[in-house]
Nucleic acid binder design. Structure first.
Lengths: 196, 196
DNA sequence: GTAAGTTCTTGACCTACATTAAGTTTTGAC
DNA sequence: GTCAAAACTTAATGTAGGTCAAGAACTTAC
């Protein structure tokens, strides 16, 4: 059940007493979304950190030509938010949308800040996952600067072995930074290679 | 003087007593580097968070073809480290090098962790700057996916107005993700445009 | 079950940027 | 002040990946 999932994911990094766990859980609101619903739209202020307990979300931006670019996926067990907007409480540029029917737990910015003061271990937990997130975005930036589309595809497969089967191909294409057309060609080419 | 600089940069985010300031300063080692010296080489384990008090550092990776890619610059008042290596204490992939004669203050990983336990405000401070860093890397990734080289150049000018004048052009080219040759033509083209 | 939307594929053509090469200017060490 | 190395520029040519268009294969809604 979803309370276990989120507590487990936290206690992998910091230890919590039963009281602390209960207090934390009491702050969460649960919510469900149908496939293709928007959790957040650009221009809105992001008010929650969102933890996915079932389904999958995607964060993406829309550029001046109307093209979408996937910043991140949030499958079960992951947190997602428009960090810029959440931190500054100004209108953001990120859209967050469900790729399947999805269940989430919401932690408001206000409660999150309060939690940091009441129980510093939660500040530690969020520091740690922010650090890990930073490392993976740095790596992804370097990959985009130094690898070919095909190499980025292989990295994606290694890092998200389950998502490869469940996500629509155009979403993966957008994540690694190519058009669906080129992605399709690339897969065809790789298939030929593998046969040899 | 450099102690003021680092204390100011922290107290912009959290308040510190005179004792706390003194304790923090007692943990720092200061060090100077000549232009083009290596502070860290790929394959080494990163043991320090580095704060720049004079000069400028650059963090970069070298790809399989021997090309360098600038991950970040650290001018005066900025922190730099190989975050992946610092967190995991495994060999990293980042090189950190001085672009000019540079003075830094070093905080060892061990002392930083201890500080988090002794004075939680320091954990808050590093959480906040890590969050800000995450936001700016996310933005840079989106820029790389959705903007042309010329637009990325303009972003760079807006975000680092001082660095544009002090950094070698090839370093800026590498940061925005183009070759020095293309960067040179781009500038030429933009000059022609401006004259009209 | 069928119509309408998505998603995926394939082909012809295009472009932003890379590569190679050669020359020029700037910097730095003695 | 001079020589060597590094940084920068310019030009010719190459290519990874984009664009446009049209059809095929799935999904979804009623």
């Amino acid at each position: 059940m979803s309370a276990n999932l989120i507590i487990d994911s936290i206690t992998r990094h910091v230890q919590l007493s039963a009281d602390e766990q209960a207090h934390f859980l009491s702050l969460l609101k649960s919510k469900t979304y149908r496939r293709k619903q928007f959790i957040l739209q650009d221009g809105q202020v992001c008010k929650y950190s969102t933890f996915v307990t079932a389904g999958c979300l995607r964060g993406f931006t829309v550029d001046q030509n109307g093209f979408e670019h996937v910043l991140n996926f949030a499958p079960v067990g992951w947190w997602i938010a428009d960090m810029y907007s959440l931190l500054t409480q100004k209108p953001g540029i990120l859209n967050i949308e469900s790729l399947e029917d999805t269940e989430v737990l919401l932690l408001s910015k206000h409660d999150q800040e309060k939690l940091y003061h009441e129980i510093p271990k939660f500040e530690r937990f969020f520091r740690i996952i922010t650090e890990n997130s930073l490392v993976s975005f740095q790596q992804r930036l370097i990959d985009n600067l130094s690898l070919t589309a095909e190499e980025r595809y292989h990295n994606f497969c290694r890092r998200y072995p389950t998502l490869i089967y469940t996500l629509p191909k155009k979403q993966i294409a957008s994540y690694i930074g190519v058009t669906p057309e080129f992605y399709s060609r690339m897969q065809h080419k790789m298939l030929l290679k593998d046969k040899k």
